[in-house]
Design a binder for these strands. Structure first.
Lengths: 243, 243
DNA sequence: AAGTGGTCTAGACCACGAC
DNA sequence: TCGTGGTCTAGACCACTTC
């Protein structure tokens, strides 16, 4: 007999309905962590469908971490785990324009040269290849919004050599031009240095949010960015599901 | 004829090999954004497999946002989009213990009562139902690490009524007891209030990182947490792929 | 109208791992 | 050993959407 307690809800497709039903049993606590879910064989009979269909549902749930599957043993409700969140960080220009403010951009320094030891480390380069270095300031309605320090690896992005980053913000340009496969973020609070505070036109004790980001294409580093936002100008929002 | 330029690499399963091959064509730029990928029908012949197999591969790639599928029109390489990151935020106790520090916990205030208007808003409650309010401090090696303000909805988590949060940190307890289905984060920099700085034993102008988090089970609010970390004590790290 | 992707079926063989 | 999940096939019907 089935351990199914909740009625099968209406839904879009068959596997969507089955998925909702199983998720309901797990999230409601009817099937607690560690509970052995009926075998695919049994689920076929319970839901009256083929094995491919229940298999697809269970594979999806396993990818999302809601269940764990072990050969010969069966499928089990996963133990509660840490959060995994989906975090969106659009580029700054789009962020400002999207809020209905006027966007302006000023580049303090643009250089093209071989990477120093420190820059090699930040970009995680193996060799001292050529890079573009950009210091710039983003502003919303003429008010400083973010200070950006950007390194671009010319070995991966040769087109950057012919781009005028005194006119165009590097983040927006890269997002629109370059396919990337992987990256990471680091987000932390920071007391600004005196020159940083001056450039951002804030008090020297005004807290800042810093976002550092690496981007790769395969094993090739594309870019490193450090963006400094005065507190209150920017926040990171993330919505998450157990994934 | 096929637009496939790269050789088919060896891999685990058939659909994993096909997926790697298609991903390679996209990430290398052989198939640029907007490029129309061969129809499923053609991919069957190219890879010599059944339609279900190429369909599974393309569905996965579409879920990850690498391609877009349109009926009657075909499947296209997606335009570059914003970042979507996987972000892990474990509970504070596990974070401190995992770094090899001694964890200690002190609750300043624990109350059980009906929610005020403000608390209703924070927890996104419809009614003024009963909640648990906890003010507490987490410390690593006796040094203040994070200040936490926590609301728990007793309608969703009745077990919280019988739990002694003067002894046990609410975050760790909830993570180990409660199945959750959805949540969100807000991360920002913050200049601490005087009493916050005093409790954290930091200077009044020391920047802080604040993380606010809602958690739901279905449409039922479970908990709200606001955690304040002195700059340097904690940072958020996120690794991401185009998803 | 025609062809695409979306979904589902009823089989099959295999590898792994608990017994 | 033998049942489980993992994978794959060769079909089928349908909905949608562009032509």
């Amino acid at each position: 007999m089935s351990a199914v307690s909740q009625p099968i809800s209406t839904g879009d497709t068959l596997h969507a309905r089955i998925r909702q039903h199983i998720e309901g049993n797990i999230l409601s606590g009817t099937w607690p962590p560690g509970f052995r879910i009926p075998f695919e064989h049994e689920l076929m009979e319970i839901y009256g469908c083929s094995r491919m269909t229940v298999s697809k549902v269970l594979s999806t749930l396993a990818e999302n971490g809601l269940i764990e599957r072990r050969r010969r043993a069966g499928t089990f409700v996963a133990m509660p785990r840490f959060h995994a969140a989906v975090l969106k960080i659009p580029d700054i220009k789009a962020e400002i324009v999207g809020r209905g403010f006027e966007y302006s951009y000023r580049a303090h320094k643009v250089q093209t040269r071989k990477a120093s030891k420190e820059e090699q480390g930040l970009l995680q380069l193996k060799n001292a290849s050529e890079i573009v270095i950009v210091h710039c300031l983003h502003a919303a309605n003429q008010k400083p919004f973010a200070l950006e320090y950007r390194l671009i690896n010319l070995a991966t992005v040769p087109e950057a050599r012919d781009t005028d980053f005194t006119q165009e913000p590097p983040g927006s340009w890269l997002l629109s031009k370059i396919a990337w496969s992987e990256g990471d973020h680091r987000i932390y609070a920071h007391n600004p240095a005196i020159d940083e505070a001056d450039e951002l036109a804030i008090a020297h004790d005004n807290a800042c949010l810093v976002i550092e980001r690496h981007t790769w294409r395969g094993s090739e580093p594309i870019t490193f960015a450090r963006q400094i936002f005065p507190a209150g100008m920017f926040e990171v929002n993330a919505r998450f599901t157990p994934a």
